[in-house]
Design a binder for these strands. Sequence first.
DNA 1: CGGTTGCTTGAGATCCATCAATAGGAGTGG
DNA 2: CCACTCCTATTGATGGATCTCAAGCAACCG
Lengths: 240, 240
Amino acid sequence: MIHPFVRKLRHGARLTAADELHLAGLMHAVRQVEARSDIVAEGAPARTLPLIVEGWACRYKLLENGKRQIISLFIPGDLCEPFGVQPRHMDHPLSAITPVTIAALSPSAVKAAIADNDRLEEAFWWDLLLAAAIDREHLVSLGRLSAPERLAHLFCELYVRLARVGLADGLEYDLPVSQLDLSDLLGLSTVHVNRSLQELRRSGLISWRSGRLTIHDLPALQELSYFDETYLQGEGVILR
Amino acid sequence: MIHPFVRKLRHGARLTAADELHLAGLMHAVRQVEARSDIVAEGAPARTLPLIVEGWACRYKLLENGKRQIISLFIPGDLCEPFGVQPRHMDHPLSAITPVTIAALSPSAVKAAIADNDRLEEAFWWDLLLAAAIDREHLVSLGRLSAPERLAHLFCELYVRLARVGLADGLEYDLPVSQLDLSDLLGLSTVHVNRSLQELRRSGLISWRSGRLTIHDLPALQELSYFDETYLQGEGVILR
DNA sequence: CGGTTGCTTGAGATCCATCAATAGGAGTGG
DNA sequence: CCACTCCTATTGATGGATCTCAAGCAACCG
């Protein structure tokens, strides 16, 4: 079984078999975190870089008025911090949505690996840029898209990201989040998320039953949400 | 006159006088860009890293429905791209808000400078983390704050950022943006921005005349917007 | 002076939040 | 197996926040 992180990086750099072994060797201290618990709490010192091997996680912020905003959503293969430095004080907690398997990368080991291998260096920077691009698109979504558009955009994005790490089955994938999670991710209320989902279902664009999302009309979903996959910087999954 | 970039980095790393000279030596090819014009257009190849020396700029995205979302706001001292790689295709254009003076950093020169100087390395990574934290906070603002809250949050943030590079005069600073810019930054309509500004003025929190913003009641502004400056990762300007 | 741009105000429509209630499913203990 | 509870999904009703359209005004500029 190929590690999802390796699988993802293949899309960003031309890795040799040796590179991939080298990468796999960086991952230590795999541990389990149960659903709904913090992986790294706010203010906690973190010596290593968390990387999702299995399961879904997120970074969120809790406001003083009790509202929650999910900042980033992490799926298998996602490195949750910039690779270059030891995270000191995490400004926002990192939390497991499902049961999660975490690998720990040491920044110094990454630095050493990068120092004498241009392809690995490129791969790590590509991943950092990709994560930033995803966050930027998320920001645009919150600022300028309506509720159904935000949902459609998210479903398109997750399709591409999951397909890259081999977790999409055709136009279907597991979506193990609650509507409450979705509302906190998209800056909406749960009630409105529910109604917007119904709208997408009624239009025949998607269905979502027992944690499994199916895209029935990808072009329509893309058009509705102005989704242009180029920000995901890969060779492309959708178009071609 | 100390370069604003150097001035900012002093808050993130203990730089020696030699380090600061080294930094200053990295900046080449200073050029002028006039207000309202693109610094780097979408899709344009960029070989160097743009750094704002003077003036205000932003990164934005234009949607197919004609709406605009400003993703990041840049003030003097801000490096507009991650330092580690040559930006290839800019997914979002970079644009001048006021007339802007741009310095160009070469990623390879930065890499060389970093290679044998831990303090400089730390400074560059600190700056990257800071920029990411600002974007995250922006995202939270769009997702979970009301219009007046978003404005208040922005004014607090700009106060801290500008003070760091010596561009705040007590609780006053130049704010050379239009209400249209603000609306595109905060995900609102211009009409609503206008009305929310009036609300803040009426409450005696701020005034804003002829491009100059004055904060009359900083604690109230902070409390209103749940502003906690720690995400800006400095020694602190507000709470000292 | 006319044209442009940005700010302001009003009115109406729409999107979305909140409050409240119901229903289903999963787990738990009796 | 049933009663109970918790969590999530769903639905209805209402109010509020924000958008859109439209018009007027102020400042600046050639």
